[in-house]
Write a protein that binds this DNA or RNA. Structure first.
Length: 233
DNA sequence: GCGACAG
DNA sequence: ATCTTGTCGC
């Protein structure tokens, strides 16, 4: 990306201990913006990471796939493969996956207008899931779109039909929304990442739907990530 | 102390 | 997250 259009916020160090990571999250969470509507969205980026869990010291493959909106045609695709040291710890996912993802995004020629992340945003113990963390560091609107719950529980029963929604509650607070994107498939857990409100987040996830469980940006990122990993063998 | 726990 | 073909159901 051009340095002129690259509005990065000063980033912090990633070689931290889990305890330091938690303190960083608490400090960064206060800077996350959970309001706003999006205008002039032309490029939506989906990010994902894949790896082989059987080999401890194998590389992870972080990718970013940019889709044109509203056509949802695939545009730029970038990937970064590298060995990561930070272990997977529930609640600290970004300290393992964000570094390579940021490198992949830095390789894009054009800055996206919105980021769709495979993971939580605000629906996190300290309200700084990987979607919020990435959105904050990149100063981009971001949405957390996870396939399972980290914290919280559905407010009510979710209808079986596509489009059904119910709040995701935690400690008596709405932290996200449970959304059924297809008939009779496991729902998605949508939460605010950064710079937009929850209603908009859910709205954009549905606008990016193509009849599959995952919204197209994240789905394409997942496909590309696996493609990169399998090509590495 | 016990269970839960994004990818 | 990943290992894996076919198979059951809408």
């Amino acid at each position: 990306m051009n340095s002129e259009t690259d509005h990065h916020l000063p980033l912090h160090r990633w070689d931290v201990t889990p305890q330091q990571a938690i303190e960083l999250q608490k400090q960064l969470a206060s800077q996350v913006v959970r309001e706003g509507k999006l205008v002039d969205v032309h490029r939506i980026a989906g990010v994902d990471v894949s790896f082989n869990p059987r080999l401890p010291e194998s590389p992870v493959h972080a990718v970013v796939v940019v889709l044109e909106y509203p056509s949802l045609d695939v545009g730029e695709r970038r990937s970064v493969s590298e060995v990561v040291n930070f272990p997977y710890v529930p609640g600290l996912l970004s300290f393992r996956e964000a570094p390579p993802i940021l490198k992949a995004i830095a390789q894009l020629e054009k800055r996206p207008d919105l980021l769709l992340v495979d993971g939580q945003g605000y629906a996190h113990p300290r309200h700084l899931g990987i979607a919020s963390h990435l959105g904050l560091l990149l100063d981009l609107p971001a949405i957390g779109c996870a396939k399972s719950i980290l914290v919280g529980h559905p407010a009510g029963n979710l209808g079986e039909q596509a489009g059904s929604k119910t709040d995701l509650l935690w400690k008596n607070r709405v932290i996200g929304q449970v959304v059924r994107t297809r008939d009779r498939v496991q729902p998605l857990y949508v939460s605010v990442g950064h710079r937009l409100d929850l209603e908009s987040a859910v709205d954009w996830v549905l606008r990016c739907g193509r009849g599959y469980r995952l919204p197209e940006p994240t789905r394409q990122a997942h496909l590309f990530s696996n493609q990169v990993r399998r090509a590495m063998l």
